[in-house]
Design a binder for these strands. Structure first.
Length: 422
RNA sequence: GUGGGUAUGGCGCAGUUGGCUAGCGCGCCAGAUUGUGGCUCUGGAGGUCGUGGGUUCAACUCCCACUAUCCACCCCA
């Protein structure tokens, strides 16, 4: 197929038959976030490349091979945002939002771009719903964040049996350093048997050793030291209170000491939302060092992001919640006309019903026969219909028909009367 | 980046050992005594059979390359 009629690799057209589900998820997400005091923030689609190198981390896959980076006409290196946190952090610093009442709670829905091999649930353009809190270095903050995501999942009626909320603590920079040394030491004794990637992980990012799926490497994982055992007293207390808060909020969770997360900026709390098929549809954690790293005031921060495409793919498998269904576009009324004069009146009445009564109404605009108009009304799922012809105009009365049960009712031919009877 | 599957009208598919105007279902448009939907019937529009080469008298059907897509790995939302 010609390139002009082919969407780029890794992108997804959200057609009307599915787009409303995205709209519903987005609406509900923002609505719930607002209840907890998160205010929406919108940042640019592209940023200076350096922002992501500094925040996400030079050693991560995202920065090393997945970014859409280009030079603009003045030779500045820009990058399409591969995730939502860094741009928000940048905007917070640049606009002095930390001078507002703290903690500062922000949320966003944004497209992100990563040059990866497309796969089920993975696209090169995808969107995230994220929430971030600045200026709160407490376990309660982290628990509240997870509860927010959990509330969204519940509202979408995703059964608890089909996903898990996994939590872990990767400690503060101090105790993590000790842990990483221990981990390194542990893995070095098997150095000869490790795969090529793990050799580089050993020096660049030892925590990722736990992630390796190569059988010959993965077998060492079981006896590897666990980070929870290396958490210092403060970090252990933090994690304990965090879990207690989750229990208080009735958020079901599982401790998974192997979660490490792929982005450099995390510390202490990390968590993932994992589907039964292994698909991670959300994740987040605490990133106290990020603001300072980006040159802002040393401010603690925490947040999460949910992949909207993945959420939608999850809800596809289950009964659609009424919240989602109500976002579908189903006309309330169809007004058919016979002849020019009637067509004009149908057009006028439709317009009035929309403008004055907020009723979604359709009429014929292509000059079809009554039969064809009715057939069309049926296909759109319109709940009521009216046919207007010379007789109706002469008597100023028409038949209002309930398309589902075929019941009819005589109504005066004006928008006010029609609106009262549907 | 590695491995495997697939690529035929909008969607889902068939197409026999290469052969004559490429079919089917759904959908779409129109009609069935002239002003009414969902069933049925009839008719119609719509495809250079992913792209480019090659073999052949002849290729959707064989060979090569490329591209796209799906799945797995890697990684992540």
């Amino acid at each position: 197929m010609a390139a002009v009629t082919k969407a780029p690799r890794g992108t997804l057209d959200k057609l009307p038959s599915i787009a409303y589900k995205y709209r519903a998820v987005e609406n509900i997400a923002l609505e719930i976030a607002n209840l907890s005091g998160y205010r929406e923030i919108r940042t640019p689609v592209f940023e200076h490349t350096e922002l992501f190198r500094r925040s996400v981390g030079d050693t991560t896959d995202i920065v090393q091979k997945e970014m859409y980076t280009f030079d603009d006409k003045k030779g500045r290196s820009l990058t399409l945002k591969p995730e939502g946190t860094a741009p928000v952090a940048r905007a917070v610093i640049e606009n002095g939002l930390l001078n507002e009442a703290l903690p500062l709670k922000l949320c966003y829905i944004t497209n992100c771009y990563r040059y990866e091999a497309p796969q089920s649930g993975r696209y090169r353009e995808f969107s995230q719903f994220g929430a971030e809190v600045y200026g709160a270095n407490t376990p309660l903050c982290d628990a509240e964040l997870i509860a927010l995501a959990f509330t969204l999942i519940e509202r979408l009626q995703i059964p608890q049996s089909c996903y898990k909320i996994e939590v872990n603590s990767i400690g503060c920079p101090e105790c993590r350093k000790i842990y990483q040394d221990a981990l390194k030491k542990y893995y070095e004794q098997f150095k000869e048997e490790l795969c090529h990637d793990c050799h580089t992980r050993l020096t660049n990012n030892p925590m990722r050793l736990l992630d390796c799926k190569v059988p010959t490497c993965a077998k060492f994982k079981n006896d590897a030291p666990l980070i929870l055992e290396y958490n210092c007293d403060d970090c252990s207390d933090f994690f304990a209170t965090f879990k207690m808060a989750l229990e208080t909020l009735n958020v079901p969770y599982h401790v998974n000491p192997k979660i490490v997360r792929g982005l450099d900026y995390y510390c202490n709390t990390v968590f993932e939302f994992v589907c039964e098929n292994g698909l991670v549809f959300g994740g987040g954690g605490r990133y106290n060092g990020l603001m300072k790293e980006l040159g802002g005031a040393d401010t603690p921060a925490s947040g999460f992001a949910l992949g909207i495409e993945r959420i939608v793919s999850v809800i596809e498998g289950y009964a659609t919640s009424s919240d989602v269904q109500s976002t579908q576009n189903v006309p309330e009324m169809y007004i058919a006309g016979i002849g020019e004069q009637s067509a004009m009146l149908a057009l006028k009445l439709s317009h009035e019903l929309r403008e004055e009564y907020g009723i979604q109404c359709l009429c014929d605009i292509v000059g079809r026969s009554v039969k064809a108009q009715m057939r069309f009304a049926d296909k759109t799922g319109a709940k009521f219909s009216i046919v207007i012809g010379d007789d109706e105009i002469a008597n100023n009365v028409a038949t209002l028909k309930n398309m589902e049960n075929k019941e009819t009712l005589e109504v005066t031919l004006n928008a006010s009367e029609i609106s009262k009877n549907i």
